[in-house]
Design a protein around this nucleic acid. Structure first.
Length: 670
RNA sequence: GCUGCUGUAGCUCAGUGGUAGAGCACUCCCUUGGUAAGGGAGAGGUCGCGAGUUCAAUCCUCGCCAGCAGCACCA
């Protein structure tokens, strides 16, 4: 027979309870008000139903709605309420799964006609009704076969499949809320009333059953739920703010780039956007630091070359191919040139050709070829998304040809470069993921074993070297078709993660192309190849930067660093002089002499996110000063022209150059 | 690619089975104004493309294209 349990509480008190005491019993034993507010309990941190008996000793906490751990319960319960509401409104709709996700939950339904946004308020109303009914959540453990029979009889085929997926050592648990019940592993709160009213259905979407694009598409409803109305409001407000920093919106407002129908997924860079692009390229080029050789390989190459590389076989659905226009318009003309060329989706095969041109000695290794390579990939239409996912983009790509002995050191060297680059753009939270062999792949298992072993070692070293600051993880089966890879994921200012950099070890491509170097004993040896990118795609990286900074680019990166704006035309000549001085100092400056009020000019340039507005009126012209208004501040400051030029040009130095300057200064001092 | 929604002036968006409207932007005129919109006038649209229904289609139907959200895929 079960023995009494001894429980310790957050206030450090310890009490004994008879066997089979439930969380609810304990709560009501403590106080009436706690019993009323309790939604669940945690035993040694594990959250459980209030109605669950406490069967072992440990640290016990009664959770109320305000506990952060209750949030997950609120959301999960809300998903159940949603499912009941939908089935009550539209009987015959099948329920499938409804998990908690970041900031909310969703529930996937199977039905003939998908939901429309108009359905959401109707469902919300029904949900409020169910919450009002305040039915207790009750758990039962069912016999596996009974569960399958019951769901089968209800026409819930997906649930039957889910029951089958529960492993034999697990109970099949059913949670009911009044008449309605669902298969669920729990835990849940005490009753539907505890869900509260701080929830909102957000959107409808299609989603594949079990995330598999070969299986049926279900109708998903996304919702968000919080402990209080204020939290819900804050979340909705946060979403609005995030929308304001959408790079597509900023691109329009700041006149950086556009897209149009004739070019799905390819960017029209306007002058200011292209300036930013060029700043990024210039920065990355400086960081090549003389240790890479920059090269440039052709945009189109014979299909045969891509067959050799394996791309034609493994990557075909993502590739564009071209032939002469004449061959297109005259497919039957035997005299026409019908050769098929692929537009490069990757730079690696080109770089192997450059490596192969001429004999290479072991003395030359590692050879590092860098290219700001413009690649095209035929991305699925639904994947396109502003600058973040395009069909034509520029990679800050490089391929390192080295010996196996050099491999680990090269990976670390790349790691250091990647991390310092991200730091220069203010990204500190980085995760490095090791992606291992995918199902669709080229190369022998021995090669994969080998490469993965080396990379696992490097991953540990990366973590150790950063002193735990860099998080690491493993992504099984997510590697490229030719080799395992490190993915560098950075977190931006509003907490979103972006995969940018990548380091991929490749034993296959050198072999496929028969690349070799001559070793110490005059033998031909196969080099190992490392693919690496830091920004990944320059386009995407710029999109990330725009959103990270909400368009407020740091001075060194801003396409227009300052605007000199006059108050009246009396100051025109002086304003021209100011612009000249700033330009002489290398600053990107524009002049606004328009016949408009200063309010108007300030507003317009502020909306265009110009970092500094230099206002010049009669006073400034007489005193040879400028009045500087920095973006985001409404308290301008007056400086002499010389001071302003010095301050702005110092701030406009790129971080890598600033490092160089401070090193130089330090060595001069010494 | 899949599911749903959307496509009207440079931008944001109204609107109607009888071929269109606002605000901002643009051009011109007045205004020389001290830190987020001074006033007036004017110009600007094959209502995404193609078929169909209809006396008549921007509006209804179908197909295509593109965009948005999610899924799948991914730098």
């Amino acid at each position: 027979m079960a023995e009494a349990v001894s429980l310790s509480f957050p206030d450090n008190s310890v009490r004994d309870y008879p066997p089979e005491t439930t969380g609810a019993d304990i709560a009501s034993g403590i106080s009436k008000s706690l019993a009323k507010k309790a939604v669940a309990y945690a035993l040694d941190g594990e959250v459980r139903d209030l109605a669950d008996p406490v069967r072992r000793s440990g640290a016990l906490e009664i959770l109320t709605r305000d506990d952060p751990r209750a949030l997950e319960l609120i959301r999960h319960d809300c998903a159940h309420v949603l499912a009941e509401a939908v089935q009550e409104l539209w009987p015959g709709t099948q329920v499938t799964i409804g998990p908690v996700i970041e900031n909310g939950f969703y529930y996937d339904f199977a039905r003939e006609t998908p939901f429309t946004p108009d359905d959401l308020p109707v469902i919300e109303k029904k949900m409020a009704e169910i919450i009002q009914r305040n039915k207790p959540f009750a758990k039962e453990v069912w016999d596996r076969q009974k569960a399958k029979d019951v769901f089968a009889e209800k026409g819930e085929g997906f649930k039957v499949e889910l029951v089958d997926a529960i492993s034999e050592d697990q109970d099949v648990k059913i949670y009911s809320q009044g008449e309605w019940f669902d298969l669920c592993r729990g835990p849940h709160m005490a009753s539907t009333g505890q869900v509260g009213d701080a929830f909102k259905l957000m959107k409808v979407a299609g989603a594949y059953w079990r995330g598999d694009s070969t299986r049926p598409m279900l109708s998903r409803i996304y919702g968000t739920a919080w402990a209080t109305k204020d939290q819900l409001k804050a979340y909705l407000h946060m979403l609005e703010e995030a929308e304001k920093r959408d790079h597509r919106k900023l691109g329009r407002e700041m006149d950086l780039f556009h897209f149009q129908e004739e070019g799905p997924g390819v960017v029209f860079w306007h002058s200011k956007g292209w300036r930013m692009f060029q700043s990024l390229v210039a920065y990355m080029r400086r960081r090549l630091d003389g240790t890479y050789e920059e090269v440039n390989a052709p945009q189109i190459l014979d299909k045969a070359l891509w067959e050799t590389s394996g791309h034609w076989g493994w990557y075909q659905e993502n590739m564009f191919a071209v032939k002469s226009a004449h061959a297109f318009t005259h497919p039957d003309d035997e005299d026409a040139d019908h050769r098929v060329f692929a537009i490069k989706p990757m730079n690696c095969p080109g770089h192997v050709q450059i490596f192969k041109h001429g004999l290479k000695s072991y003395r030359e290794l590692p050879i590092r070829y860098a290219e700001f390579g413009n690649v095209h990939r035929y991305e699925p239409s639904g994947a396109l998304h502003g600058l973040m996912r395009v069909r034509g983009f520029t990679q800050d790509d490089a391929h390192v040809f080295c010996t196996e002995d050099q491999l680990a050191a090269e990976c670390m060297r790349i790691n250091d470069l990647i991390l310092s680059t991200y730091a220069d753009f203010g990204f500190q939270e980085i995760t490095v993921k090791l992606s291992t062999r995918p199902e669709k792949r080229v190369g022998s298992d021995e090669n994969w074993d080998h490469a993965e072993r080396i990379m696992a070692g490097v991953l540990d070293e990366i973590a150790a070297k950063s002193g735990g600051r860099i998080k690491t993880a493993v992504n099984p089966g997510e590697g490229a078709f030719y080799g395992p890879k490190f993915e560098y994921v950075l977190r931006d200012a509003i907490g979103r993660d972006w995969q940018c950099g990548t380091t991929q070890v490749d034993f296959n491509l050198p072999e496929r192309f028969g690349a070799f170097y001559i070793d110490e004993t005059s033998e031909k040896k196969r080099p190992v190849m490392i693919h690496r990118a830091i920004c990944g795609s320059m386009e995407r990286f710029l999109g990330i930067l725009l959103e990270n900074y909400a368009g407020h680019m740091p001075l060194w990166f801003a396409p227009v660093q300052a605007v000199v704006a006059t108050i009246t035309s009396d100051a025109d000549d002086y304003a021209r002089e100011v612009v000249e001085e700033l330009r002489a100092a290398g600053l990107k400056v524009e002049l606004d002499l328009r016949n408009e009020k200063i309010n108007y000019k300030v507003r317009e340039h502020s909306l265009a996110k110009v970092p500094a507005i230099l206002v010049c009126g009669k006073r400034e012209a007489e005193e040879k000063t400028v009045n500087i208004r920095r973006l985001g501040s409404n308290t301008p400051s007056s400086k002499t022209l010389a001071e302003a030029v010095a301050a702005l040009s110092e701030e406009a130095v790129a971080p890598d150059l600033a490092r160089g300057m401070s090193r130089k200064a330090a060595s001069n001092d010494a």
